[in-house]
């Protein structure tokens, strides 16, 4: 008693039904011979799925979907300017925290402690010049990215309903970013810092009604000196980081909730 091998698919009968030339019959018989032994069909399926996986189409990006290629404002990198702002902010925060280990906000002494600490960071500290350089460039990039981000939002109409409030938060963030840069500009306590501070002081004093109060609040007096440097330092390393980080979280959270404004 032996078990007769059976062809479930009845390939022989199928072959008889076909109207084939001699050559085709021989070819198919050989193919059937190997297929019954090696299950070639499985490997064929594998090859086929590999082929389709390798040649998967990338989904069309939004610019392609809306037929917006060659329209400048819908160029994808412009849509990543917000992310770039955040990245530059993070880079500036990390390098700024490291710089803070060596900087001292004091205008006392000759040369002043702040200035000589800057010289120390740049000349003697390992990687100090690089660290300051990174901090400064990240700040420049952040301001530039914020500004370009605003332009992109303007020219693609992304501020419109229901996103007006996020635009307002964005304008506040723009002002805070510039103020962040201004307070940082004063910290090295070189000539430009001090005289930029002088301009700021004059502007504060020129404000109607609250001028003197504002000058005292921001600069700690009516001339740019130690109190002003100290206040700028506290605003730069303590006050603004909290406010700006919080607002960035809210800003991005709202984008998350509302989704990216569809380009049209």
């Amino acid at each position: 008693m032996s078990v007769k091998p059976q062809d479930e698919f009845d390939r022989k009968a199928w072959l008889q039904e076909q109207d084939l030339t001699h050559l085709e019959t021989i070819y198919l018989k050989i193919l059937i011979y190997f297929d019954t032994r090696f299950r070639l069909v499985d490997y064929l399926e594998m090859m086929e799925s590999l082929y389709y996986k390798a040649n998967l189409q990338m989904p069309k990006s939004h610019t392609e979907q809306y037929n917006l290629d060659n329209k400048f404002w819908y160029w994808y990198p412009l849509y990543s300017l917000g992310l770039l702002t955040l990245l530059a902010y993070i880079v500036a925060a990390v390098s700024g925290a490291l710089l803070g280990l060596y900087y001292a906000p004091s205008a006392e002494g000759d040369p002043s402690t702040a200035y000589s600490q800057m010289i120390f960071i740049m000349d003697e500290l390992d990687f100090g010049l690089m660290l300051r350089s990174i901090h400064r460039w990240a700040a420049q990039f952040m301001v530039a990215a914020v500004f370009l981000h605003m332009l992109r939002v303007y020219f693609t109409g992304a501020y419109k309903e229901p996103r007006e409030l996020n635009w307002v938060i964005g304008v506040i963030l723009l002002i805070l970013t510039i103020a962040f840069g201004y307070t940082g500009y004063l910290l090295p306590w070189n000539q430009l810092s001090m005289w930029a501070g002088q301009i700021g002081l004059e502007m504060a004093l020129a404000s109607p009604l609250i001028g003197e109060w504002l000058a005292q609040l921001m600069f700690g007096g009516f001339e740019v000196g130690q109190p002003a440097l100290m206040r700028m330092y506290i605003v730069h390393v303590f006050l603004f980081p909290f406010i700006v980080t919080g607002l960035i979280i809210v800003h991005i959270g709202i984008v998350w909730m509302q989704g990216i404004a569809e380009p049209h």
Binding site: Y115, R132, R136, W189, N190, Q191, L192, S193, E223, G225
Partner: peptide
Amino acid sequence: PPHFGDEADP
């Protein structure tokens, strides 16, 4: 690397 000016002098 960034420029660094003279010390502040009122």
